[in-house]
């Protein structure tokens, strides 16, 4: 199955998805050294976003969040790609400065967790394959 969205930042990625219906604040909500979600009560609390295709509705919180994405990238703990329903400026800027492929305009409910995703940020497409 293939989904078409809107390009926020170019680049290609392959990986397993990590999906949440809750918004994410990178500043204060994600550990910049480990990639683990630390926000109290978040449904992904304790899980790592590192090297995965991270799908969530939209970003929230302080604009310092853009730098957290950059720190994750430098620490090799950034998501391989980000998929949003509506991309907010903090995540958009974070993806641009960190060169993380990012697509929005995606109905994230259509992404199932037992798949393997092929992200093409240049054309804003997502290919879903069954996980082996």
């Amino acid at each position: 199955m293939k989904l078409q969205g809107r390009r926020i930042y170019k680049g290609k990625a392959l990986g397993k998805p990590i999906i949440t219906n809750q918004n994410i604040s990178f500043y204060g909500g994600v550990d910049p050294d480990t990639g683990v979600i630390t926000e109290k009560g978040h449904e992904l609390e304790g899980k790592s976003v590192a090297k995965k295709i991270l799908a969530f509705p939209t970003g929230k919180g302080s604009t310092v969040g853009s730098y957290v994405l950059y720190r994750l990238k430098k620490n090799d703990k950034a998501p391989a790609a980000i998929l949003n329903e509506k991309c907010d400026p903090i995540v958009a800027v974070g993806c641009i400065i960190s060169e993380i492929p990012c697509i929005d305009g995606i109905d994230i409910k259509k992404i199932s967790k037992d798949t393997f995703l092929e992200i093409d940020g240049d054309n804003a497409t997502i290919k879903m394959k069954k996980a082996n």
């Binding site: 500043y27 910049p32 310092v64 730098y67 950059y70 720190r71 990238k73 430098k74 620490n75 400065i97």
Partner: peptide, 10 residues
């Protein structure tokens, strides 16, 4: 404090 080493690198 907010930027950290990575922010400075940017």
């Amino acid at each position: 404090e907010n930027l950290g080493e990575a922010g400075l690198e940017f």
